[in-house]
Lab assay of single mutants.
Amino acid sequence: DVEPGKFYKGVVTRIEKYGAFINLNEQVRGLLRPRDMISLRAENLNVGDEIIVQAIDVRPEKREIDFKYIP
């Protein structure tokens, strides 16, 4: 289970104008929005990159997770 405030290692699987999709594993995926990329620009991300993200909002009923990148 993903808990708000905890840090996780994930892999960038898709990049859109509104953010990057980060997979923690095959069943868990969330969104890293540009406003939550402190000191990281979306254009510096590539599909396949491994990054550490913090879960900031977890909505299990919608199967949605928002992440924040903190260097």
Rank of each mutant, 00 (worst) to 15 (best):
N46P: 00
G5S: 04
R59T: 04
F7W: 10
V53A: 01
I15D: 01
N44D: 15
Y18V: 09
A20N: 01
R29K: 10
D57Y: 09
E50F: 15
G30R: 02
G10W: 14
V47H: 01
L32S: 02
V53G: 00
Y18E: 10
G19P: 01
E43Y: 10
V58W: 07
K62T: 11
E64Q: 14
E26M: 11
I51F: 03
R63E: 09
I15K: 05
Y18H: 07
Q27T: 14
I22Y: 00
R33L: 09
Y18I: 11
P34C: 14
A55R: 02
V58G: 04
D49F: 07
A20F: 11
I22F: 06
V11S: 02
A55V: 15
S39D: 14
T13S: 10
I65S: 02
R41T: 12
K68A: 15
V28W: 15
P34H: 14
V11T: 11
G10N: 00
L45D: 00
F21N: 01
I51P: 00
Y69A: 06
R41G: 12
E50D: 07
Y69W: 09
G30Q: 03
L40P: 05
I15G: 00
Y8G: 01
A55Y: 04
V2I: 15
R33W: 07
K6V: 07
Y8K: 00
E64Y: 13
I51A: 00
I70D: 11
K68Q: 09
V12R: 00
Y69T: 04
G48I: 00
E26Y: 11
V53Q: 00
K6M: 09
E50A: 10
K17R: 13
K62I: 08
V12K: 00
L40S: 07
K6H: 10
M37F: 06
F7Y: 11
P34Y: 15
R33Y: 06
R59E: 03
V28A: 04
V28R: 02
V58Q: 04
Y69I: 06
K6G: 09
L45H: 05
P34D: 11
I56K: 08
V53F: 05
Y8F: 04
V47Y: 02
R59S: 05
I51Q: 00
P4Q: 10
I38S: 12
R33S: 07
N25G: 11
Y69F: 11
Y8M: 01
I38D: 12
P4A: 12
P4H: 07
K6F: 07
F7P: 01
I52H: 04
G5N: 06
Q27K: 14
V2L: 08
I22K: 00
S39F: 15
E16L: 10
P71W: 10
T13Y: 05
F67D: 03
L31C: 09
I56V: 10
V2H: 03
Q54Y: 11
P71I: 09
L32M: 06
E64P: 02
L24R: 00
D36W: 10
K68H: 06
V2C: 06
V28G: 04
I22P: 00
K62W: 08
V28K: 02
R33C: 10
A20R: 00
V11N: 02
Y8H: 01
G48S: 01
N25K: 05
R35M: 09
R41A: 12
D1L: 14
G48E: 01
S39M: 13
D1F: 15
E43H: 13
G5H: 05
K6S: 06
Q27D: 12
F21D: 01
E26I: 13
D66S: 10
R59H: 05
P4F: 08
K68V: 10
I52A: 02
I22A: 01
L40A: 07
V2P: 05
N44A: 13
E64T: 08
T13F: 03
I65F: 07
P60W: 13
D1N: 13
Q54N: 02
Y18P: 02
G30A: 05
F21Q: 04
I38T: 13
S39A: 13
D57S: 15
F7N: 05
P4W: 07
D36K: 04
D66P: 01
F67P: 03
R29D: 07
P4E: 10
K6C: 12
E50N: 09
Y8I: 02
L31F: 07
I52G: 00
I22T: 00
E43T: 10
R14A: 11
Y8V: 02
D1I: 14
Y8P: 01
N46Q: 15
K68N: 04
I56L: 12
L45T: 01
A55W: 06
A20W: 12
V11W: 12
D66L: 15
Q54D: 01
I56W: 05
K17E: 12
N44K: 11
R63I: 06
N23C: 14
L24K: 00
V28M: 08
E16R: 06
P71C: 15
R29E: 09
G10K: 00
G10S: 01
A42G: 11
P34I: 15
E3W: 09
K6A: 07
I70G: 05
V2S: 03
L31T: 06
N23W: 12
R59C: 08
I65H: 03
Y69L: 08
V11F: 08
